[in-house]
Design a binder for these strands. Sequence first.
DNA 1: GTCTATAGTGCGATAGAC
DNA 2: GTCTATCGCACTATAGAC
Lengths: 195, 195
Amino acid sequence: MTRWAPGTAERLQEAALALFADRGFEQTTAADIAQSVGLTERTFFRHFSDKREVLFHGQRLLAEAFTSGAQAAPDGASPIEIVACALRSAASVFPDERRPHSRARRSVIEQNPALRERELHKLAGLSAALTETLRARGVAPLAAALAAQCGVTVFGLAFTQWIGEGEQRSFDALTTQTLQELLALAAKGTPRIAP
Amino acid sequence: MTRWAPGTAERLQEAALALFADRGFEQTTAADIAQSVGLTERTFFRHFSDKREVLFHGQRLLAEAFTSGAQAAPDGASPIEIVACALRSAASVFPDERRPHSRARRSVIEQNPALRERELHKLAGLSAALTETLRARGVAPLAAALAAQCGVTVFGLAFTQWIGEGEQRSFDALTTQTLQELLALAAKGTPRIAP
DNA sequence: GTCTATAGTGCGATAGAC
DNA sequence: GTCTATCGCACTATAGAC
């Protein structure tokens, strides 16, 4: 017998999502979450550096999928093609079964500005990691940052569509279609912007 | 004679930037800032909803420039052309004289994750406003969101270049060049991403 | 303007695992 | 014995309520 059950962080995450969904983020204290799984507030903060972080721990998997996908892109791929590989890889993190959970999580985040800020920060981290991967593959700094940021934009909008009510398309299909739409928009952009 | 000197918020902003630059954001309390201009902590929080906000009040001007630029775009302009107009208009907010101030501000923000989160949140607000303007002009929802987000991406990267050490180009020149680079990247993107 | 709840930190104590 | 997860307590600053 172990004195401490394993998966403490995971239990805290689940409990937090449930409580946030029920009473709201601000109406739930860190002590509430800890107590609901039989721990103290102090222990909560040992696992999560701040109260918001409890909703964002899973994002590590996503960052890994992103960069591993980019690294696995074929030699000679253009920056946008590399980004497309990263997106395809990211799609594996969001199988259809996860839709309800993602919806619940997003609904909580949507209702609190502080949580939205944290989400944007995590997306920026994705962008930075992808930029780094692109640069490691020899892409010029500005191009790498632009392509990575476009990838994250497509990811974000695909995700929003994916959890939309009644949406049936897979995450993978949505990223592909959204990226195509971005490329189409760019192609319609004026050839000369300067006067 | 007025009982209270005008421009209280502005004086607090300046004092805050100076103190943050000197001791760091976390080492400066709201009371420190208020005291340094002869006010109380309570007054600080009357002007700014939270401590970070004192660095972001100026952003309203930027949002207005963005949307007014987009609204002023010629009829029949493509989404990317509209975004280009927004960027051109935004450039007026960043004349060369502002470079040193922008650099100091960015340096403070860069060193604190909480401030970076707030900055990303403000950029997301710009994106949302621009999306709305594009939609009002009849652009389809997804295209509007994509184009607006690309605009904000270009804005952000142009800004980072603009405050780079030794950079001489104007903000306007940088947005134009960065947008062109984005369009060039998209043009090199593969015609078919799906297998 | 005062008062209070909560976030988050620092440090020491405890107790089981090894 | 060491290591590590947890707890308990004291403390500050934020931010909002009154």
